[in-house]
Write a protein that binds this DNA or RNA. Structure first.
Length: 586
RNA sequence: GCGCCCGUAGCUCAGCUGGAUAGAGCGUCGGCCUCCGAAGCCGAAGGUCGCAGGUUCGACUCCUGCCGGGCGCGCCA
């Protein structure tokens, strides 16, 4: 409908310019928006106001002239000029209620569009290091990324979802050392736990699995492991130096084969745990991309060579630096340390280069807000490769702050005091989790109230929306119970009977859905869907409270049933994008 | 110090890429339970959109400078 109106305006503009003897102003972008209040019609255009300057005439005069040149359209009841020069379109009731028939016709497809044009887009999200279970902060990235993926798919993009597994580098060695120390502890070779090690219970679990599978295979003497090592932090030393020395010693004592076994077992255990966790949260990926594989395949070296060829690398103090400042970053960045090791950033460069080389037209990185410092350097590296950096978008997701009612939960990542995503899911359920995480703009801090998320009341937005869905199901059940016939096609034919204000409001809300998907996808903002669903549910509940659906008048009853089942369909479609279920009953 | 994000009703937040009288929910206040689901329903009050300039027909929206809050600035990941 919106497009048709835009077309009418375009024709009117042509006619107007012809009669005025003026050339067409260059950008003939016809902007239409939904009318807000009752008096503003169904759609409004600011075209006349935009033309005022190029055509050197007052906007209201232009608006009147445009309307005169506007072709007749069967669905347009009348057109008015209002305010400073808005052109307001009032649609016939048939046109408005036609959306109900369309929803029934298109079902789960309703709202999908092709603004993406099948463009291949890769979205990377969560990508937490495999050093422990996901915590509640990662949950938001997961829910956001998953919803954004669904949203873009609904808008006609060919979406590829990826998790970048940082399974290479020093953190992995620290993980291996942590597991080894726990393992030895269990085998009676107690070693003081390194200050910089990972302390969580899951380390014990991994160590126990290691024992179950390999018994004494990794047993080494505690005294040998620690002899001559520098002091750890609690003994006045440096925790970094200590753990590095510990790792080196462990490798020497175990030999590379056995050491790598521990390391891979630990990484695999944690990665699987993360996979399970996300899968249980309804978050699916097309690929888990291993950093290690990137290093092993030589892709990182190749990327660095390309940068060197481009003259974007220099040496200083024995290390290799990327000239990030030449491309808008505020510092140059080390890509290869003096000891020959590549940095995390180096593999990140290779990974992003690979995304574009795999042919994705666009890439989206969902980062936690604490990683915003990486935007500039990653973008800089792509620019150095000669890629159009506009093809890469960063979406920063702010942290979630947990509340239990009014009490704010302390969440320190130290001392294992953090709340895991799993714990949150078990407490509030996946539906509330998914919804709460995405109901706010991602760049806004999120107050996540566990009590509210669990509550079965209308104050809880998830409950409120799901309840609207269940209520429609409940009405249909009631229908059956009473043995009332429901004539579906009669309902669609009789939509003209729906002229109560509540019905008009609900129909109007339903009609907005396709435009909503388009705009939410364009701005990559799933929260718009959450916001809309609450409004839609409110329109439905209000209607429900004001009118009885199962009236004796069969034609009216069928029309109302057509309306509420259409509402149910749209709620389902919207919730599906957010990854929230649409239950038959609460 | 530099960079990124945020600042809208008492609280938590929307505000459709610059439009008309800035909207919801909670809370507060006032009414409501014979009715397809009353842990609900209906209504009202509540605002210097952090401050000050600028851009233009028009600014919550864009630009600049302040103020306040969060985060980041390693040859860490």
């Amino acid at each position: 409908m919106k497009d048709e109106l835009a077309d009418l305006l375009r024709q009117a503009l042509h006619g107007l310019c012809q009669s005025l003897g003026e050339p067409l102003p260059d950008p003939v972008a016809i902007h239409l928006e939904r009318g807000r209040g009752e008096g503003h019609g169904d759609y409004a255009s600011n075209l006349a106001m935009r033309l005022a300057k190029p055509l050197r005439r007052p906007p209201r005069e232009l608006a009147d002239a445009l309307i005169e040149h506007l072709p007749i359209h069967p669905h347009v009841e009348r057109v008015e000029v209002a305010g400073p020069g808005f052109i307001n379109f009032f649609l016939t009731q048939d046109a408005a209620s036609a959306v109900v028939a369309r929803i029934h016709r298109e079902g789960a497809e309703f709202g999908r569009c092709n603004s993406g044009g099948g463009e291949r887009i890769i979205i990377e999200f969560v990508s937490a290091n495999p050093t422990g279970p996901l915590h509640v902060g990662h949950g938001r990235g997961a829910a956001f990324g998953a919803a954004l993926g669904n949203l873009l798919e609904a808008a006609g993009y060919d979406v590829h979802r990826e998790y970048y597994v940082n399974d290479a580098g020093r953190q992995m060695h620290i993980l291996a050392a942590s597991v080894l120390v726990r393992y030895l502890e269990h085998r009676g070779e107690a070693v003081a736990f390194p200050a910089n090690g990972y302390r969580g219970d899951y380390i014990h679990d991994i160590a126990r699995d290691l024992e179950a599978n390999a018994g004494e295979r990794y047993r080494i003497a505690a005294a040998e492991l620690t002899a001559g090592l520098p002091a750890d932090a609690n003994a006045g030393g440096d925790k970094e130096a200590y753990i590095d020395a510990l790792i080196t010693r462990a490798r020497a004592l175990l030999g590379e084969t056995r050491y790598q076994e521990i390391l891979s077992a630990a990484v695999a255990a944690i990665t699987h745990d993360i996979e399970d966790d996300l899968a249980a949260f309804g978050v699916r990926y097309d690929r888990w991309y291993s950093e290690h594989s990137l290093v092993a395949s030589g892709a990182v070296d190749r990327a660095l060579e390309k940068l060197t060829t481009a003259g974007a690398i220099y040496e200083d103090n024995g290390a290799q630096w990327f000239r990030a400042t030449d491309y808008g970053d505020d510092k140059d960045r080390v890509v290869r340390r003096a000891d020959g090791q590549i940095t995390y950033f180096a593999s990140d460069i290779a990974y992003h280069l690979d995304k574009f080389e795999r042919g994705f037209a666009r890439a989206i990185d969902v980062f936690g807000a604490d990683h915003h410092g990486y935007m500039a350097r990653v973008r800089a590296s792509l620019e150095a490769f000669g890629h159009d950096t506009d093809r890469l978008t960063f979406r920063l997701v702010q942290f979630a702050i947990l509340y239990r009612g009014h009490e704010r939960l302390a969440m320190s990542t130290r001392s294992g005091e953090f709340v895991t995503l799993r714990e949150l899911r078990e407490e509030v359920g996946n539906d509330a989790g998914r919804f709460f995480y995405v109901m706010r703009r991602p760049e806004q801090h999120l107050d996540f109230d566990l009590e509210l998320a669990k509550s079965r009341s209308n104050d809880n937005p998830v409950y409120y929306i799901q309840y609207a869905h269940a209520r429609v199901c409940s009405v249909l059940a009631q229908l059956e119970e009473r043995g009332i016939e429901h004539d579906h096609s009669a309902g669609l034919a009789g939509l003209g009977r729906l002229n109560e204000a509540h019905e008009q409001a609900l129909i109007h809300a339903l009609g907005r859905y396709p435009e909503l998907i388009e705009s939410a996808a364009a701005s990559q903002e799933p929260h718009q869907i959450a916001q809309y669903l609450r409004e839609l549910a409110a329109a439905f509940h209000t209607y429900y409270n004001a009118h009885t659906f199962l009236v004796d008048d069969a034609e009216l009853r069928d029309a109302r049933l057509a309306l509420i089942t259409a509402t149910r369909q749209v709620i389902r479609n919207g919730l599906a994008i957010l990854g929230v279920s649409a239950p038959q009953s609460m």
